[in-house]
C-alpha cells in the first residue's frame, strides 16, 4: 500500500471511532515509536507499533500464517473422573436432581459441582495465587462438574473421602442452572453403623478416633428427615457406589 493511503486509512479509522482514539492514546503515552511509523501523528504511531496490551483495541496483528484457531474449551472442572491420582477406595457417586417446582420431575441441563477431601482430609485448590506450570500438574483434584442428563443424573468417579477434625465425612454439592446461577448449595453425608461403608473404610490411616458422627456434625445434626443422607453400597475390594436423589426448586 502507498504510504499516503496507509496513513489516510488510519486517520479515517481514528475519526470514525472515538473509543479507538482513547485507547490508542493510552498506548502512545507509554510506548516508544518504532520502525517506519515514527513520523506519523501520535495516534497513528500507536496503532501501528503497539502490540502489547490484550485490552488494547489497536493491537497489530501478527505477521504470520493464520491459526491455530482458539476453540471453546470447558473449564477443566468438567469431567466425570475427578480422582487425579489420589489414592483411596474407588467411589462411584451418582446424583439425581429433580425439580420440586415441577412435580419432582428430573431436572436436566443443571450443572452439578462436587468437591470433597482426600483420604487424609485435605482439599485441593486452596493454594490460591501461585504460579502454575504448563504441564498442569493437578491443582483441583477431587473437584468436578457435570451436566444432568434427561433423567437428572450425573455420575462421578472418585475415591471414598477421608475426614478431618470436627466434621463427619461428606461431599459438597453445588447445583447451578445452565447460566451458572446458584440453585442449591448442600452437602451429602454417609450412612454409619454396622456394615456401613464408613466403618469398612475406617478413616483410612487415621482410624475413627476423634471422628465426628452425623448426629454431632454441625451441618447434618438437624437433618432429621435424612434428606442429605446418601445410600452407599459396595466394599473395599470392588469399590463403593454412592447414590442420592435431591429435590431442588428450579
Amino acid at each position: 500500500m502507498e504510504r499516503k493511503n496507509f496513513l489516510r486509512s488510519l486517520i479515517i479509522g481514528t475519526v470514525s471511532t472515538s473509543v479507538l482514539v482513547d485507547s490508542c492514546k493510552k498506548d502512545t503515552d507509554a510506548i516508544t515509536a518504532t520502525g517506519s511509523s515514527t513520523t506519523t501523528s501520535s495516534s497513528t504511531t500507536a496503532s501501528s507499533s503497539s502490540s502489547s496490551s490484550g485490552s488494547s483495541t489497536c493491537s497489530v496483528i501478527e505477521t504470520e500464517t493464520e491459526g491455530p484457531f482458539p476453540s471453546k474449551t470447558p473449564a477443566s472442572y468438567v469431567r466425570s473422573d475427578i480422582t487425579d491420582g489420589r489414592t483411596g477406595y474407588k467411589l462411584t457417586a451418582k446424583f439425581t436432581i429433580n425439580n420440586s417446582n415441577n412435580s419432582c420431575n428430573p431436572l436436566s441441563g443443571a450443572l452439578v459441582d462436587i468437591w470433597h477431601c482426600d483420604a487424609e482430609g485435605n482439599y485441593s485448590e486452596y493454594g490460591g495465587t501461585s504460579m502454575q506450570s504448563t504441564n498442569y500438574t493437578s491443582v483441583h483434584f477431587l473437584r468436578g462438574r457435570q451436566t444432568t442428563d434427561a433423567n437428572g443424573l450425573v455420575t462421578f468417579t472418585s475415591i471414598f473421602p477421608g475426614w478431618y477434625q470436627s466434621r463427619a465425612t461428606h461431599i459438597h454439592v453445588h447445583i447451578y442452572n445452565a447460566a451458572g446461577t446458584s440453585l442449591k448449595v448442600t452437602q451429602v453425608c454417609f450412612p454409619e453403623g454396622t456394615g456401613s461403608a464408613l466403618l469398612a473404610v475406617n478413616g483410612y490411616k487415621k482410624g475413627m478416633t476423634g471422628y465426628t458422627y452425623n448426629a454431632q456434625d454441625s451441618v447434618f445434626s438437624d437433618d432429621s428427615a435424612g434428606l442429605e443422607l446418601a445410600t452407599v453400597t459396595g466394599n473395599t475390594t470392588d469399590g463403593f457406589v454412592l447414590s442420592i436423589t435431591m429435590s431442588i426448586p428450579a
Binding site: 470447558p74 477443566s76 491443582v139 483441583h140
Partner: peptide, 8 residues
C-alpha cells in the same frame, strides 16, 4: 481452571 484449556 476455567482458562487452563485456553492457555494450553
Amino acid at each position: 481452571p476455567s482458562i487452563t484449556g485456553y492457555v494450553q
